[in-house]
Design a protein around this nucleic acid. Structure first.
Length: 269
DNA sequence: ATTTTCCCCTGCCGGC
DNA sequence: TGCCGGCAGGGGAAAA
């Protein structure tokens, strides 16, 4: 469930907490995350290197170190990155200890999350390249062209990270509700005007969710271990059977592209 | 090109 | 109360 707003919140937290600090040690508690061989490489390339800058593209969070090595994290469903003032309250899959005394824990109940180490200039995801970031890169005209050019249904398109990156099930459903478009509508049947509205709805949804520090509907936590508040804004996500906040019709739960989706049958056409 | 199914994991929840 | 199947929905791979 960490989508763009949640990853962006964590990015900002880490930037504030760790910029300029350098790792002095780390512990790997889950071999699925990293082989011993990878661990050796990590030791050689990250220890003693100040953490310089923090970037986000889609749902990927990356850190650039002083030697231009990059660490890239993907939290998948249940990953958390939490900064502790001192080590270490619970067992992390990966715990990185910093010179300043802080520690960064990578927690991940379902263990789907991943982390990569990239050398300077190393090519990343050469096949399956990420589409433009939904907030920082995607432009309105390009979005409209994308929507008009595809036959797939609109919700799976919004969630396709090769088409545009950062949008997951929560914000796709919320943006489609705002734009009054049914999640199962074929993308090409969305009019240019509707696509334009959807683009604005999506931006607004993502930006507001960032200002609320993300949605903690399940187990998302920010880098301080605190819940976000954006779940209080959800109109449809996981609200099947409840009344539509706009017209009071009963919201319908369906499966679209193998994922759960909730919409209002009255006001989303 | 698109859709479906399966897989990776674990915890929670509802039904029996 | 306790067990169990289904579900949560990030992604990728393979099959339809």
């Amino acid at each position: 469930m960490p989508e763009l707003p949640e990853v962006e919140t964590i990015r900002r937290d880490l930037e504030a907490a760790l910029t300029g600090d350098s790792a002095v040690a780390f512990t790997v508690n889950d071999r699925r995350l990293m082989t011993r061989q990878m661990e050796e490489r990590w030791s050689k390339e990250i220890l003693g290197q100040p953490w310089k800058s923090f970037q986000r593209t889609g749902k990927y969070l990356s850190v650039e170190l002083a030697n231009q090595t990059r660490l890239v994290f993907h939290l998948r469903m249940t990953g958390q990155l939490i900064v502790h003032a001192e080590p270490l309250p619970m067992k992390a899959r990966l715990l990185i200890c910093f010179a300043g005394g802080r520690a960064l824990g990578f927690y991940d109940q379902r263990r789907f999350g991943e982390v990569w180490l990239l050398r300077p200039g190393e090519v990343w995801r050469s096949k399956n390249p990420l589409g433009p970031d939904a907030l920082n890169e995607m432009k309105r005209d390009e979005f409209i062209r994308l929507v008009k050019s595809r036959t797939t249904r609109i919700q799976p398109l919004l969630m396709d990270q090769r088409a545009l990156s950062g949008v997951g099930n929560i914000y796709a459903q919320e943006a489609l509700f705002k734009a009054a478009i049914r999640p199962s509508r074929p993308a090409w049947r969305v009019t240019a005007k509707e696509a334009s509205l959807l683009f604005e709805a999506l931006r607004e949804t993502l930006q507001t969710a960032i200002s609320y520090r993300g949605s903690s509907s399940r187990n998302y936590r920010d880098a301080n271990g605190e819940e976000g508040a954006a779940q209080t804004l959800h109109a449809v996500y996981r609200k099947g059977g409840k009344p539509c906040p706009r017209c009071q019709s009963i919201l319908r739960a369906a499966r679209v592209g193998g994922r759960g989706s909730v919409y209002c049958p009255q006001c989303q056409k």
